[in-house]
Design a protein around this nucleic acid. Structure first.
Lengths: 148, 148
DNA sequence: TTATAAATGATAATGATTATCATTATTTTA
DNA sequence: TAAAATAATGATAATCATTATCATTTATAA
């Protein structure tokens, strides 16, 4: 079961770096693992508040940073001024289509694009560590006027 | 001469939208047109201050927004928390390699990548309005330890 | 179990951007 | 051309996401 794998990765990570465990952080991990999509800090905070009345937003920030370090989460910046987080473990690299009307994020991936990027880097002697491709536009549903 | 073309575009644009002319904004336009690279608001502000002692930073923000509207400038967000501006007139679309050490921005473009993006959008019924591809990494010079 | 040091929650600080507003400058029009 | 109308400016307050601080709580090691 994937969630168990991810929890194991988390446990190994905090053990390796002498990070102490905390009930709050484990609750945040559960919320994150149980979520789909690309949640913002604010969204995670609101969900966490329902389950842990006094949790502070700083704890969400701190936890997500740790999950990113552990390879479980990845920041996604769609340019709306909010950091978002998506699952990274067992998820292949992908790119994003972002609907400017409804905010929906559609994932896609393409091997040829990846390959060309590698070639370009090789040619320039540039050592890539990460890359992102975002296409902004209007999704199929919103073109029909579905989401106004 | 390209700069003259751009000034003409600017004049036509402000005329069309009943935007009044201002010495400050014209100075900012000159600085922007005379610059290479991808300047931030702060950088533009500092240069403008040298030539126009009392200019306010809000005026830089306002001017760059107008230049974007006129199709002369385009915002570039490399994820460092600062908006940057590059020339748009007579510049084909291109993507960016960003060096994580020295901050250098290298431009590139590739027709095949563009074509594949179109195909993906067509397949999904997604109507693209813009897109950006950024590759982060270490540039050739910094790999040699040149920029530490 | 006690000493230690990390984690938390509240909130202050930061930094980029936007809004506000009195003043100045540009246009319009009489 | 002069006066009226209104946009632009500069200073600065407001906003908003994120980070830092710090007293208190909690987890771990001795």
């Amino acid at each position: 079961m994937t969630v168990e794998d991810e929890k194991t990765i988390y446990k190994n990570y905090i053990s390796k770096y002498s990070i102490r465990k905390s009930k709050q952080r484990e609750k945040i991990l559960e919320i994150f693992l149980g979520s789909e999509g690309h949640l913002t800090i604010q969204e995670l905070f609101q969900i966490a508040r329902e389950k842990y009345k006094n949790i502070g937003i700083a704890t969400i920030y701190r936890a997500m940073k740790i999950f990113c370090g552990a390879g479980l989460a990845e920041e996604v910046d769609v340019g709306d001024g909010n950091k978002r987080y998506e699952h990274k473990y067992n998820h292949n690299h992908h790119d994003h289509l972002i609907c400017e009307k409804c905010g929906k994020i559609i994932e896609f991936s393409n091997n040829i694009i990846e390959k060309i990027q590698q070639d370009i880097c090789n040619k320039l002697g540039f050592k890539p560590t990460s890359h992102k491709l975002q296409i902004n536009g209007i999704c199929k549903e919103c073109q029909k006027g579905g989401n106004l």
